[in-house]
């Protein structure tokens, strides 16, 4: 059915997507909570910066990542010299590129999840002797969990579709950074690549469709759980 190269692209996409989801989870949750619950000077500025990757052409963050994390970049050189970690043009770079582009989705999902929680429930928990940290763990986090899960699925789905930032920062290296979208791009440039492109496109469609379906089902379930939606 699928050639080795196609399997490779599929497996790499799943790996990059999973890692991108994992690394954006905690920072995204924290940023979402910050935007939902805290008032501070410069909040609109922070908000604009956090959501920039959503509106920029992905090649722009991709190029900026290259400038920062490339072997000549400030952070890239520091990581290489101190930790022997190289990001540009390998799969870890693809993770960073995907996570950067998909990060706003995590922030937005976490923010909505936290905003949906009535602050008086948290106040009630505080007046029952729970410290702010305990309130966070026993009230805020469990109630936001379904929304956070939706965010994680959105990040994963977006990572699967990431193209511009990945090809700019991590390149199009078969078996290393050639994820599904990049493999489709390469296939369409081959004379006999039509069938291959079609197969990969079908996989992408299926992946994306079922991710969105799952996230919608989770969202409904979460709303029922929180008592927002009945039956």
């Amino acid at each position: 059915m699928l050639t080795d190269m196609e399997w490779q692209a599929l497996a790499l996409s799943a790996k990059v997507g999973a890692w991108a989801t994992l690394v954006s989870l905690l920072p995204g949750l924290w940023c979402g909570w910050l935007l939902a619950r805290k008032q501070f000077v410069g909040k609109p500025v922070l908000e604009a910066i956090l959501f920039l990757p959503m509106v920029l052409p992905p090649t722009v963050p991709g190029y900026l990542l290259l400038v920062l994390f490339g072997s000549q970049g400030v952070l890239g050189r520091w990581l290489l010299e101190n930790f022997n970690i190289q990001l540009a043009f390998n799969w870890k770079g693809a993770v960073l590129a995907s996570a950067t582009i998909a990060f706003p989705l995590m922030v937005q999902a976490a923010r909505i999840a936290v905003q949906m929680i009535d602050t008086r429930i948290e106040s009630a928990a505080r007046t029952l002797g729970s410290s702010p940290a305990k309130v966070w763990l026993t009230v805020t986090l469990p109630l936001a969990l379904p929304g956070i899960l939706v965010g994680a699925i959105m990040v994963f789905s977006r990572s699967l579709g990431e193209f511009g930032a990945t090809i700019t920062f991590a390149g199009n290296i078969m078996g290393e950074t050639q994820t599904l979208p990049l493999a489709i791009y390469s296939a369409t440039h081959q004379v006999d690549g039509n069938n291959m492109a079609m197969r990969l496109i079908t996989i992408c469609l299926g992946f994306a469709f079922f991710s969105l379906l799952l996230s919608n089902l989770l969202q409904r379930r979460a709303e029922r759980w929180l008592g927002v939606r009945h039956a």
Binding site: T127, L128, V135, T138, V139
Partner: peptide, 16 residues
């Protein structure tokens, strides 16, 4: 959380 003062709201605010 250190005052040991109970508070009951208009609509209960139970942990859902």
């Amino acid at each position: 959380h250190q005052r040991r003062i109970g508070l009951v709201f208009q609509d209960g605010q139970l942990l859902p």
